[in-house]
Amino acid sequence: MRPVIPYVTAALLFGLGVYGVLRRRNAVLVLMSVELMLNAVNLILVTADTTARAVLPHSGQVFALFVIVLAAAEIGVGLAIVLQLYRLRATVAVDDVALTEPAHPVDRREPAVLDREAGR
């Protein structure tokens, strides 16, 4: 088995993930690119498990499992943030998000709640 093949695959996938994170405007596509990067790291960990003889056997694969768990947690919280952003701003384009607070305070509650209050 030649380890350079999966290593190069992982390096190219990581580059693709970086490209996608910087290029895409849609927040869901940015999350998909982050998944590509995390999987490239997983592939490197599993391949390193075959090339490096560590004191503890299978450490690389154990770490790959841990990274998979971390990615699952990340995607859960990330999607909650994306859906909340869509609910507040009706857009998921990451470069439409204001990085500073608006000068005059905006009521950021849901339109349905505001309607209910205005009708009272």
Binding site: P3, V4, V8, A11, G15, V18, R23, T51
Partner: peptide, 28 residues
């Protein structure tokens, strides 16, 4: 994005190819 992504991907490729060449290892 193309510059940084391509730089990261190709840089890592060069690094790893240089480290492992065309050698073989036995599967564990």
């Amino acid at each position: 994005a193309a510059l940084i992504g391509g730089g990261a991907g190709l840089g890592l490729t060069v690094l790893l190819v240089d480290a492992y060449r065309w050698g073989t290892v036995a599967l564990p």
